[in-house]
Design a protein around this nucleic acid. Structure first.
Lengths: 134, 134
DNA sequence: AATATATTAAACCAAATGGTTGACTATCGA
DNA sequence: TCGATAGTCAACCATTTGGTTTAATATATT
């Protein structure tokens, strides 16, 4: 009732919830790959991998074009953009946290600076996140 | 086998794959809510909603503090940041600005290819974009 | 003390998921 | 034409999921 209808997101997030499928997507960033090529790295039957690919296809994350007996798969990122767009709504809820963390880290940096002169100047955002997620 | 272990992402993406759970998260952006408060908008038993909340909690997206008989839920966005971070890797595949840039780089590559022969046939998208994202 | 409220727990159910194997289809190469 | 190759399909299986209902637990309220 209060719901937003976002049928895509269901499928996209579900597709992304499996590590095999995420790995397949990652593999496809290197370029077009056949079904067999995508399947080989996994300790899984071809049919199994094929099913994963079909899930990705169903979620609109992979496009396929058949050439003879070979099925070429290609990353289709538009739906990933939709997912990220959804997540963007929540950005403010972690950026504020990172700002808090930044304050803490700046404090630490200040402490470190007392002994040895280091890069205390500009803590780039990437720095903060890389530290926090570790 | 060849893959990275990212146990969080499994749980986070799975949690996000359900519209009820996404709605709950959205609701929590307005502030702390009790389990009953979260449950009421849905045509679902309290126990059902409670289970959804537990899934979100298990994925680290919700924190709960109990006060008497009331359970207060709170959005915990850090894991959402991890999910977005994962998606960020794929940004270059949908950002049209970068696609435009890609055309420019391809032009440069063509100029370079005149002197040194490389794999111009296969679309080594990663090569082109690695330059653009830097 | 008795009762209402907030919430979880447990048992159950139908459907979906992630995987298998074996058969089938189509195409490529000799 | 024959056999290998690429891939799907269908049936099957165990587990998980999303939901229910009926207790059970703990805390408020009167």
């Amino acid at each position: 009732m209060v719901e937003f209808q976002t049928p895509h997101l269901d499928a996209v997030f579900h597709a992304l919830s499996d590590p095999t499928r995420r790995a397949i997507l990652h593999r496809l960033t290197e370029g077009e790959r056949t079904v067999s090529e995508l399947a080989t790295p996994f300790n899984m039957s071809l049919a199994g991998a094929s099913k994963h690919i079909k899930v990705l296809e169903g979620a609109g994350l992979v496009r396929r074009h058949v050439q003879g007996r070979t099925h070429y798969c290609q990353l289709e990122a538009a739906r990933l953009a939709e997912a990220q767009e959804w997540l963007r709504t929540y950005e403010r809820f972690w950026t504020t946290r990172l700002d808090d963390l930044e304050a803490i880290l700046r404090e630490e940096d200040r402490a470190l600076a007392r002994s040895s002169e280091q890069s205390t100047s500009s803590p780039a955002k990437s720095d903060k996140t890389s530290r926090s997620t570790k």
